[in-house]
Amino acid sequence: MLEVFLFSVIVGLVYMLMAIGFNLVLGVSRIVNLAYGAQIILTSYIASTLLNFIPAVVALPISVLLSLVIGAILWLVLWIFRKDLILSIVVSIAVALLIEGVLLKIYGARLISLVIAPGDIMGISAQWIIAAISSIASLLAFYLMMSRTMIGKRMAAVAENEDLARYMGINVRVTSMLSFIIASLFASIASIAITPLYAIYPHVGWYYLTIVLAVVIVGGLGSAMGALASSMILSFTQSLAAYYIGSPAKDLIPLTILISVLLLRPEGIFGRGVRWA
């Protein structure tokens, strides 16, 4: 039981990491990036190929870097369409399908998994420890960036009021791109952290998207404590549902939570009443 508990905490942390990236893009760029789920699995696929040829220490940074480049291109596409929110949503779906299609073509529909660190450390799987450390480190770095650096303050300013930020001499376009790249970075780290725990296939990006949307919307937009709480709630409910009802129930949980919250309290349970419509 302790193992289930620990596993749920780690998965919850990774969920939070994913959600924070999505939320950042939503807040700073006002882009609903539905290709985010596809971005999450993309890094693991790149890494799985590179790991066949080069050691993990080199392969993982390269796969993250490649994902960031793809993220930057994706930003450019969505930036062009962002004037019309619904249009950009449709376009991001098209991009998600494009990524899924390419992965399907190259890797096929089978399940793949990443093995980065086999073995145990003090009875705990090394993979779990890596997942926990990388998510906590990323979350901390994000906190420091937002509170201590100029980039963080610029992003906060653009998120608060884009026009005002522009008058203050902030380059909104660059800030938006940066937010997107940081989000892609989080997606990549989360990808490498979670794929050793759950195997993936090209269609699974949609599932991660529902997780991200569930965390973001249940947690309320722009609320860090809300995101943490909702990530943990989601992860624990999933573990319990998988344990007591069966594996398909686990997939149904983020959707059920999400749809009920959207209908009952569109601003989220822990939210500060921020709406994105």
């Binding site: 609903v32 539905l34 929110l85 619904i86 949503i89 779906i93 949609w206 599932y207 529902t210 949307l213 398909p248 129930a249 997939d251 149904l252 959707l255 059920t256 999400l258 749809i259 959207l262 209908l263 569109p266 709406r275 994105w276 419509a277």
Partner: peptide, 22 residues
């Protein structure tokens, strides 16, 4: 009936994904 614009679109996008686990 409850949601408008992008809220509506994103919420409805999720519905089809409930069918497979069901």
């Amino acid at each position: 009936l409850k949601l408008r614009g992008p809220f509506y679109s994103v919420a409805t996008l999720l519905y089809p994904f409930t069918l497979a686990p069901i």
